[in-house]
Amino acid sequence: FLTKYFNKQPYPTRREIEKLAASLWLWKSDIASHFSNKRKK
Results as ranks from 00 to 15, higher is better:
residue 1 F to K: 03
residue 1 F to M: 07
residue 1 F to T: 07
residue 1 F to V: 03
residue 2 L to V: 03
residue 2 L to W: 13
residue 2 L to E: 00
residue 2 L to P: 02
residue 3 T to V: 02
residue 3 T to Q: 07
residue 3 T to F: 01
residue 3 T to L: 01
residue 3 T to E: 10
residue 3 T to P: 00
residue 3 T to G: 08
residue 3 T to C: 02
residue 3 T to M: 03
residue 3 T to K: 15
residue 4 K to E: 00
residue 4 K to P: 00
residue 4 K to N: 02
residue 4 K to C: 01
residue 4 K to Q: 01
residue 4 K to R: 02
residue 5 Y to A: 00
residue 5 Y to V: 02
residue 5 Y to H: 15
residue 5 Y to P: 02
residue 5 Y to C: 15
residue 6 F to V: 03
residue 6 F to G: 02
residue 6 F to N: 01
residue 6 F to Y: 04
residue 6 F to I: 05
residue 6 F to R: 07
residue 6 F to D: 00
residue 7 N to V: 00
residue 7 N to A: 07
residue 7 N to W: 00
residue 7 N to I: 00
residue 7 N to Y: 01
residue 7 N to L: 00
residue 7 N to Q: 04
residue 7 N to M: 01
residue 7 N to G: 03
residue 7 N to F: 00
residue 7 N to T: 05
residue 7 N to K: 12
residue 8 K to P: 00
residue 8 K to G: 05
residue 8 K to H: 00
residue 8 K to R: 05
residue 8 K to T: 00
residue 8 K to L: 00
residue 8 K to N: 03
residue 8 K to Y: 02
residue 8 K to A: 00
residue 8 K to I: 00
residue 8 K to V: 00
residue 9 Q to Y: 02
residue 9 Q to E: 10
residue 9 Q to H: 10
residue 9 Q to I: 10
residue 9 Q to A: 04
residue 9 Q to P: 01
residue 9 Q to C: 11
residue 9 Q to M: 09
residue 9 Q to K: 11
residue 9 Q to D: 07
residue 10 P to T: 12
residue 10 P to C: 12
residue 10 P to D: 12
residue 10 P to E: 15
residue 10 P to H: 07
residue 10 P to G: 08
residue 10 P to R: 10
residue 10 P to F: 09
residue 10 P to Q: 15
residue 10 P to Y: 07
residue 10 P to L: 07
residue 11 Y to P: 08
residue 11 Y to R: 11
residue 11 Y to W: 12
residue 11 Y to C: 14
residue 11 Y to N: 14
residue 11 Y to G: 15
residue 11 Y to S: 15
residue 11 Y to Q: 15
residue 11 Y to D: 10
residue 11 Y to H: 14
residue 11 Y to E: 12
residue 12 P to E: 13
residue 12 P to Q: 11
residue 12 P to W: 05
residue 12 P to K: 13
residue 12 P to M: 09
residue 12 P to S: 09
residue 12 P to A: 13
residue 12 P to V: 01
residue 13 T to H: 08
residue 13 T to Q: 09
residue 13 T to S: 10
residue 13 T to I: 14
residue 13 T to W: 15
residue 13 T to E: 03
residue 13 T to D: 05
residue 13 T to F: 13
residue 13 T to C: 05
residue 13 T to L: 14
residue 13 T to A: 12
residue 13 T to P: 12
residue 14 R to H: 02
residue 14 R to M: 11
residue 14 R to S: 03
residue 14 R to F: 03
residue 14 R to T: 10
residue 14 R to E: 00
residue 14 R to P: 03
residue 15 R to P: 09
residue 15 R to G: 09
residue 15 R to I: 05
residue 15 R to F: 02
residue 15 R to Y: 03
residue 15 R to N: 07
residue 15 R to W: 03
residue 15 R to Q: 07
residue 15 R to S: 11
residue 15 R to L: 06
residue 16 E to W: 15
residue 16 E to R: 13
residue 16 E to V: 07
residue 16 E to H: 08
residue 16 E to S: 11
residue 16 E to Y: 09
residue 16 E to C: 14
residue 16 E to K: 14
residue 16 E to N: 06
residue 16 E to L: 06
residue 17 I to Y: 09
residue 17 I to P: 04
residue 17 I to V: 11
residue 17 I to H: 05
residue 17 I to W: 15
residue 17 I to E: 01
residue 17 I to D: 01
residue 17 I to F: 06
residue 17 I to T: 01
residue 17 I to L: 11
residue 18 E to W: 03
residue 18 E to V: 02
residue 18 E to A: 11
residue 18 E to H: 05
residue 18 E to M: 14
residue 18 E to F: 01
residue 18 E to L: 02
residue 18 E to Y: 03
residue 19 K to H: 02
residue 19 K to T: 04
residue 19 K to M: 02
residue 19 K to N: 08
residue 19 K to Q: 04
residue 19 K to R: 09
residue 19 K to G: 05
residue 19 K to C: 02
residue 19 K to Y: 01
residue 19 K to V: 02
residue 19 K to A: 02
residue 20 L to N: 07
residue 20 L to T: 09
residue 20 L to W: 15
residue 20 L to F: 13
residue 20 L to Q: 02
residue 20 L to H: 04
residue 20 L to S: 05
residue 20 L to G: 06
residue 20 L to V: 11
residue 21 A to G: 15
residue 21 A to W: 12
residue 21 A to K: 14
residue 21 A to H: 02
residue 21 A to S: 12
residue 22 A to L: 03
residue 22 A to P: 04
residue 22 A to K: 14
residue 22 A to T: 09
residue 22 A to W: 06
residue 22 A to D: 05
residue 22 A to C: 05
residue 22 A to N: 11
residue 22 A to H: 11
residue 23 S to E: 09
residue 23 S to R: 15
residue 23 S to F: 01
residue 23 S to Q: 02
residue 23 S to M: 03
residue 23 S to A: 07
residue 23 S to I: 02
residue 23 S to K: 15
residue 23 S to T: 10
residue 23 S to W: 09
residue 23 S to P: 08
residue 23 S to C: 08
residue 23 S to Y: 03
residue 24 L to C: 08
residue 24 L to S: 02
residue 24 L to D: 11
residue 24 L to V: 14
residue 24 L to F: 06
residue 24 L to E: 00
residue 24 L to Y: 01
residue 24 L to G: 05
residue 24 L to R: 03
residue 25 W to L: 14
residue 25 W to H: 14
residue 25 W to Y: 05
residue 25 W to C: 08
residue 25 W to K: 15
residue 25 W to M: 12
residue 25 W to P: 07
residue 26 L to D: 12
residue 26 L to Y: 07
residue 26 L to N: 15
residue 26 L to P: 15
residue 26 L to R: 15
residue 26 L to C: 11
residue 26 L to Q: 14
residue 26 L to E: 14
residue 26 L to H: 15
residue 26 L to A: 08
residue 27 W to T: 07
residue 27 W to L: 11
residue 27 W to N: 04
residue 27 W to Y: 05
residue 27 W to E: 01
residue 27 W to P: 03
residue 27 W to R: 12
residue 27 W to K: 13
residue 27 W to G: 13
residue 27 W to S: 10
residue 28 K to M: 15
residue 28 K to V: 15
residue 28 K to P: 15
residue 28 K to C: 15
residue 28 K to D: 02
residue 28 K to N: 05
residue 28 K to S: 12
residue 28 K to I: 15
residue 28 K to T: 15
residue 28 K to Q: 06
residue 29 S to K: 15
residue 29 S to I: 13
residue 29 S to A: 11
residue 29 S to M: 08
residue 29 S to P: 15
residue 29 S to W: 04
residue 29 S to R: 09
residue 29 S to D: 09
residue 30 D to Q: 12
residue 30 D to Y: 10
residue 30 D to L: 03
residue 30 D to N: 01
residue 30 D to W: 12
residue 31 I to D: 12
residue 31 I to H: 08
residue 31 I to T: 10
residue 31 I to N: 07
residue 31 I to F: 06
residue 31 I to V: 15
residue 31 I to Y: 06
residue 31 I to R: 06
residue 32 A to R: 13
residue 32 A to D: 05
residue 32 A to C: 14
residue 32 A to L: 12
residue 33 S to L: 07
residue 33 S to I: 07
residue 33 S to G: 11
residue 33 S to F: 05
residue 33 S to A: 12
residue 33 S to V: 04
residue 33 S to R: 13
residue 33 S to K: 13
residue 33 S to M: 10
residue 33 S to Y: 03
residue 33 S to D: 04
residue 33 S to H: 12
residue 34 H to E: 04
residue 34 H to K: 12
residue 34 H to V: 14
residue 34 H to W: 13
residue 34 H to Y: 07
residue 34 H to T: 08
residue 34 H to A: 12
residue 34 H to F: 09
residue 34 H to G: 11
residue 34 H to P: 12
residue 34 H to Q: 11
residue 34 H to C: 13
residue 34 H to S: 11
residue 34 H to M: 13
residue 35 F to V: 10
residue 35 F to S: 07
residue 35 F to P: 05
residue 35 F to M: 12
residue 35 F to K: 06
residue 35 F to C: 03
residue 35 F to L: 11
residue 35 F to W: 09
residue 35 F to E: 10
residue 35 F to R: 06
residue 36 S to G: 14
residue 36 S to D: 07
residue 36 S to I: 09
residue 36 S to N: 04
residue 36 S to C: 12
residue 36 S to K: 13
residue 36 S to A: 10
residue 36 S to T: 13
residue 36 S to H: 12
residue 36 S to M: 11
residue 37 N to K: 14
residue 37 N to P: 09
residue 37 N to Q: 08
residue 37 N to A: 09
residue 37 N to T: 10
residue 37 N to W: 12
residue 37 N to G: 12
residue 37 N to R: 10
residue 37 N to E: 08
residue 37 N to V: 09
residue 37 N to I: 13
residue 38 K to T: 05
residue 38 K to E: 03
residue 38 K to I: 06
residue 38 K to W: 05
residue 38 K to H: 09
residue 38 K to A: 07
residue 38 K to C: 06
residue 38 K to V: 08
residue 38 K to S: 06
residue 38 K to D: 04
residue 38 K to Y: 02
residue 39 R to E: 05
residue 39 R to S: 10
residue 39 R to F: 07
residue 39 R to N: 12
residue 39 R to W: 12
residue 39 R to M: 14
residue 39 R to L: 13
residue 39 R to T: 06
residue 40 K to E: 04
residue 40 K to V: 02
residue 40 K to G: 10
residue 40 K to I: 04
residue 40 K to W: 08
residue 40 K to S: 05
residue 40 K to A: 12
residue 40 K to F: 09
residue 40 K to N: 02
residue 41 K to T: 08
residue 41 K to L: 03
residue 41 K to S: 05
residue 41 K to A: 04
residue 41 K to R: 09
residue 41 K to V: 04
residue 41 K to D: 11
residue 41 K to E: 09
residue 41 K to W: 15
